[in-house]
């Protein structure tokens, strides 16, 4: 019985997405409209769970699903599409 419960828990946890984070330094992000632009663009991407934006630190933390990935080129492309500029990507 105990084995069955553990096996069930492992089964469900393995199907649960665990976020992994990528931190992006962004130039030109000075106001909430800027931050909202980045949110709108990134949250349309498959695999992007959430965005944590800090105007103070000038960073966007991209939280991805466990099985998702996003290349640096794609990040640059999305930042530029939103109207801003990537200053660095930390994985």
């Amino acid at each position: 019985m105990r084995f069955l419960m553990i096996a069930t828990a492992v089964f469900f946890l393995s199907g649960t997405a665990i976020a992994k984070d990528i931190t992006v330094n962004v130039n030109g992000m000075v106001c909430d409209f800027c931050a909202q632009s980045l949110e709108k663009v990134f949250l349309k991407e498959d695999g992007v769970q959430n965005l944590d934006i800090s105007l103070k630190n000038k960073t966007v933390v991209i939280q991805l699903d466990d099985d998702a990935d996003i290349s640096d080129e794609k990040i640059n492309e999305l930042i530029e599409w939103a109207g801003y500029e990537t200053a660095g990507i930390i994985r």
């Binding site: 030109g28 992000m29 000075v30 109207g83 801003y84």
Partner: peptide
């Protein structure tokens, strides 16, 4: 938007 200058602390 003809030109945007994105700087680390300004725009």
């Amino acid at each position: 938007l003809v030109k945007r200058w994105n700087n680390p602390d300004s725009q």
